[in-house]
Structures are given as structure tokens and as C-alpha cells.
Design a protein around this nucleic acid. Structure first.
Lengths: 346, 346
DNA sequence: TGAATTTGTGTAAACGTTTACGATAGCTGT
DNA sequence: ACAGCTATCGTAAACGTTTACACAAATTCA
């Protein structure tokens, strides 16, 4: 099982192993005929270069670490596909670690990746982790944050423009004739959520309507949380015509609660999500939402990280990518008799 | 940015770097007082062991490679969470590569992982890849296949019992009174699909009902494929009372096509999926299906791989884990009168 | 007490690369 | 023909560990 080394092929080629190394690495200081001969021999013998030995001397591994809460989160897994494919194009491999929504684990895996000598780390931090302990870690390796900002690290941060996204959403609902729009699922301790709420409230004020915010104390924006939140809200008096959710997952929970109450979507209630996770496009869900361009997010984050790794600090700065409206079937115009698009089941 | 080495801490500790190494590795041949002193010093200085240097001499990396079609596939991402967490418990890290449903890429990343000197590889092969080219690769490193079998590699293979799963599904539908059950989405060139089809047909024969199979020529079992397949089927005459899909994704597409045709689920038509991906439990979908125990699949695969890595061939053999029925809201009991009428929709 | 054993620590080799440096051979130009 | 180049290749050091071996000090035992 132990594989061939440079020495092995050097021996049968009758050259020194430095020559073989040069043949493989495309060095100019080697004769073209010997290079061809050696390349052919390597292929025949089935030689596979040992990249850990290479890393040892080159002092970089071409591995980048990815830390996220849980890869089965659809937003995160979509992002990861693009991250991995793009990284590979650039000559890097991805080492993925789940922090399992646990701050201690998040730091532990960070340290683990540090000892793995990854060249850089991309992290989708768990919401509440704006503590200092991560700070001391991030100074040890190029790091870029995706989606969730830490207040004090604005320079290596990629995200969509959350505020603008919620402005677009609120404007859309307003343009449909909605005047009672409730925002569901605001969470404390999250910069992302604060920015989204701001987009909503500022747009409400612009249009002279009153913002109504349902806060969430649940640790995650799951559909279970959305269900619980909405069920409680529906049990009291309510006269809103539209609900704008802080995330698609929450919106799916709201659909459930609405169905139980006999509230039809979108006929009785318009519903919007945020993120455009893959769920949202599923026919039975068919949720109008705000898209996060995952691929652009991924390549931007990777580009930024690579820049930092290569020390070309020139363009090293955070970036906000643009959200966009995705119209599906969960919203309906009010007070006008337009019955254009169908319901969530259309 | 360049981090401390053993020599650095040895220098300030006033000992040789071998001693520091021994303190860190928990070697018995070192005084307890010096060990404590050194450990404390390492902590103070912020020393991080270089695991690539360690790999160099130990001849193993404690990295295992994971190859899958696309991590945003919900089944695969759920599996990956468990794989990664369990691997980490066992002292391994995961290097994840997407093959993007591309056979050439699948082989390329395999070779890449080989040069990374991963200790083992877990692969969810793309369906048609029962070719020999992978064979020559898998002989070079411990490998276990998950979910999709290759006919000629039965020893390192973890999967659920696909046949039994479809037997359970068919039996369930039969027990609900269904006598016209169509199987939708069978795909050629896939052992998994062949096994599932067999479970279905054998159970049909057992009950004396006729198997009706809709084959799929689409490359993946996506909901788009399910929609297209079902739409075409619904456009012809049909009198089935239940559709059993080869996967949950297909079932979601069938839901869509049924809705368009005005066929209500489950009132007019019972629908079952297979896999129990996270989608299936979403309230608007609420699909009755067969569960694949992802965590058991993951730990079994990892255990098998580690066994092989450690050379303890004793228990090294493939394993079939048990599928189970998950009853949700997409199936209804059917009595014989309605069935005799030839179906609710014509 | 002296020898034998144990315990703790240092020395050095090894892992498989890359690459600076040196050496040799073949050229060039005059 | 000879100095100076260039092109090609070999030698050896380096990367940061682990660990076999050597060896000194401390302990044990007769």
C-alpha cells in the first residue's frame, strides 16, 4: 500500500531525485528530452506526488478550512458547493467542520484547523459569537467571515446587503397594496438580523406605515420556530395582510400555522421569506423571497481570502453583494382585483 | 504570522525539543514535573503543533476524503454532517469534494485525494460509474462506498436494504387498500434503483397485483424529473390509486404535477417517497416515506473505513442498515368500492 | 557499597519534498 | 584555444515532527 517516492522513480530513471522533482514541477532547468522521459516513466509507474511532504517545505498546504454551523442547513450547503468547486479551480481543497451551533466547538475546530496549517479559513459564524475569543484565533491565519458579521471585524467580511434586501421586500409588499405588514423572527445578538430589521423599519417609515415586529427568542431560524411564533401570533387578534419573515425557514413554519388556522396563502395572507434557499422553489412551497446569490457570495469570499493569503492587501476589503427579489406564488396584490399568480401550490 | 515550533519552546524551556515532543504526546518516558512545566509553557507561548510535519513522519494524515456528487443534495448533506462529526470524534478531519455528477471529475478528485495522502476515502459514487477506472484507484487506499453499490465491490459497501425498504413501502400501500400502485422513477445503470424496483415487484407479486413501472431517463432523481414524468403519465389514461416514487425528490415533482391536474393528495391519490430527506418533513410537503437512517449509515461507513485503515480486517465486510416506514400525511386508506369505480379522476 | 536496573533526557535519523548551490559538460565568441 | 557562458544535473540542506538509541543520573538490590 505504501506508494512510490521520487527516489523510486529516480532510481529506475537513472537520475537523481532532484531531477525528477524538476521534471514534475515544470522547472526550466531541465532538458526537454529527459523531462518527457521522466514524465512518461512516472505515469507508467503510477507515481503520485506526496503533497504533505510538499507542504512541509513549501510552508503552505493549499487547504482552506470551512467552519459552519451545520452543513445540512440548505443555505450553507449551497454555499459550500460553490466554495468547494471554486477553491478546487484555484488549486485549493476544502476541509469542512461543523460547529453544531456551539461556540466552544466553533473555537475548537478553529484551533484544529490552525494545527492543520490551513492556508486560510472561511467561517459562517454562529450568531452570538461576537466575543473576543474568536478574535485571538483569527489573527493567526487569514480569515473571512461570511453572512454574519462581527461588529469589530469589518475588513474581512462578505455578505449580501441585508438592509437593502429587506427594503426591497418591504417595498414589494407595499407596492402590492399591503399596509399592515408584520415582520416575524427578529433575533437579538445578530448583526444580520439587526440589519434586516433596519431595512424593514426604515422602509415602513418611508411609506408612513407602522412597523410591527415579532421577535424570536429561539436560537435558530428554523421552521419550527416560525410555526411556534406564528401560532402564538395568530391566536391573538391580528389584522395584518402580509407577513415578512426574517428567513425562508421561518416562512415555512408560518405556512404551517396558517394552514392550521384555515388562513389561506396567498389569498388571505401574503407571505415572504428571505434567503431563497432551495426549499423555497419547491412547488408545494413556492415562496416569494429575496435571493442571496450564493455563487457570488462564495467566489467573493474565496477571492478575498486568497488575496489575503497572497499578501496582496491592495484590494483587501469587505464586500456587500446585491440581493434581488424572487417573485413566486406566496404574495397577492391587495385592494386591486389582480389575481395573477396562484397560491403556494401553483 | 509564522508560528512557533518545538525548538522555540524547547529553547525557552531549556530542554531539547525531543523532550517537548514527549511532553505533548503523553509519552511515559518523561518526568511528571517537567511535563507540567512544559505543558504550561506551551500554553503560555501559544504553541500550536504542526500536524503536517507530524503526518510526514507518522505516515498518516488523519484526514479522510469524502467524494459525493453535490453537497447541496439534502440526503448527502445530512449524511455529511454525521460523517464529519463522527470523524472528528475519532480524530479525523474531512476533506470534501464534489464530483458534480461527472465521472471524469469523480476520478480526478479521487486522485487528488490520493496525493493528499488521505488515510481513507468515503465515496457516494454517481450512479453510472460502475466502470473499471475507479477500480484501479480504490485499490490504492482504503475506500468505502455508501448508498450506491458497484457490482464488483461488495466488501466495502454500506447502504440501507433498498429491497426491504421498497417491500415495506409496497406492503404499507397494500395494507391501506391500494391495489393499483405505480412505481415511478426507476433508473437504469443504478444498482440502488434495481434493488428498489425488485422490492416493489416482488411485493406486488406476493399480493397478486400487477406491477406498473414508469422508468426515468433523466440523469438525476430531481423533482423536475418527477414533475415531467408525472405530467406525462397523468396526460394519458390512468387509474392508479397510489404512486410509489423511487425517491422523495421525485415525489415532490409528482405533487406539483398532481396539483396542476387538480388531483388532490392524499384524497384522490396516495403518494410515497423514499429516503426521508429533510424536505419530506416540511409541513407543506408532509410526505410519507421510507427513512434512511443517515446517522447509522454515516457511523457504519466510518467504522468500516477505520477498521480497514487499521488493518483489522476481521470485521471488514459490507453492511445493510434497516430502512423504516415514516407515516406522514400523503397517503390515505382506500376501500374497494372506490377502487372498483376506476379511480376518482379520469 | 558496588553493580544492576530504572528513569529521564539528549542526539540524530527519518519522513518526501523543493531549491540554493556547485559542478560538469557543451557552447559561444574572439 | 581559452575564457566565459549556458544548459543540465547532482548534492545537500531545510521544513517540523517522532522515536530508536545512547547515555547520564537516580534508584534499587544483593
Amino acid at each position: 500500500m505504501s506508494s512510490l517516492t521520487l527516489k523510486d522513480v529516480a532510481k529506475v530513471a537513472g537520475v537523481s531525485y532532484a531531477t525528477v522533482s524538476r521534471a514534475l514541477s515544470g522547472s526550466p532547468e531541465i532538458g526537454e528530452k529527459t523531462r518527457q522521459r521522466i514524465l512518461k516513466l512516472c505515469d507508467e509507474m503510477g507515481y503520485t506526488p506526496n503533497s504533505v511532504a510538499r507542504s512541509m517545505v513549501m510552508k503552505h498546504t493549499n487547504i482552506i478550512g470551512l467552519i459552519l454551523a451545520s452543513i445540512d442547513n440548505p443555505f450553507m450547503s449551497e454555499l459550500t458547493v460553490h466554495l468547494e468547486i471554486y477553491a478546487r479551480e484555484l488549486g485549493y481543497n476544502l476541509m469542512v467542520c461543523n460547529s453544531s451551533y456551539n461556540q466552544k466547538l466553533e473555537r475548537d475546530v478553529f484551533r484544529l484547523l490552525l494545527s492543520r496549517k490551513v492556508d486560510g479559513i472561511i467561517i459562517l459564524p454562529i450568531s452570538h459569537s461576537s466575543d473576543e475569543s474568536l478574535q485571538s484565533l483569527t489573527s493567526q491565519v487569514p480569515t473571512v467571515f461570511v453572512s454574519e458579521n462581527m461588529q469589530d471585524l469589518p475588513e474581512n467580511y462578505i455578505s449580501i446587503d441585508n438592509t437593502r434586501g429587506m427594503k426591497i421586500a418591504t417595498d414589494y409588499l407595499y407596492s402590492l397594496g399591503h399596509r399592515k405588514i408584520v415582520y416575524l423572527g427578529a433575533r437579538k445578538n445578530s448583526v444580520t438580523h439587526a440589519l434586516r430589521v433596519e431595512g424593514y423599519t426604515s422602509t415602513c417609515k418611508k411609506h408612513g406605515i407602522e412597523p410591527i415586529i415579532i421577535e424570536s427568542n429561539y436560537p435558530r431560524s428554523s421552521h419550527e420556530a416560525g410555526y411556534l411564533l406564528a401560532r402564538e401570533y395568530f391566536s391573538k387578534s391580528h389584522d395584518e395582510t402580509a407577513i415578512l419573515c426574517a428567513s425562508d425557514s421561518l416562512a415555512i413554519g408560518v405556512m404551517h400555522a396558517a394552514y392550521e388556522k384555515g388562513i389561506r396563502i396567498p389569498e388571505d395572507l401574503s407571505l415572504m421569506g428571505f434567503d431563497n434557499i432551495s426549499f423555497a422553489s419547491l412547488p408545494p412551497i413556492n415562496l416569494t423571497t429575496i435571493n442571496q446569490p450564493k455563487q457570488e457570495l462564495a467566489t467573493s469570499a474565496m477571492d478575498l481570502l486568497i488575496q489575503h493569503i497572497n499578501g496582496t492587501e491592495s484590494g483587501y476589503s469587505s464586500k456587500l453583494v446585491s440581493p434581488s427579489l424572487v417573485i413566486r406564488g406566496s404574495c397577492l396584490a391587495r385592494n386591486k382585483e389582480i389575481n395573477a399568480n396562484g397560491g403556494p401550490h401553483a
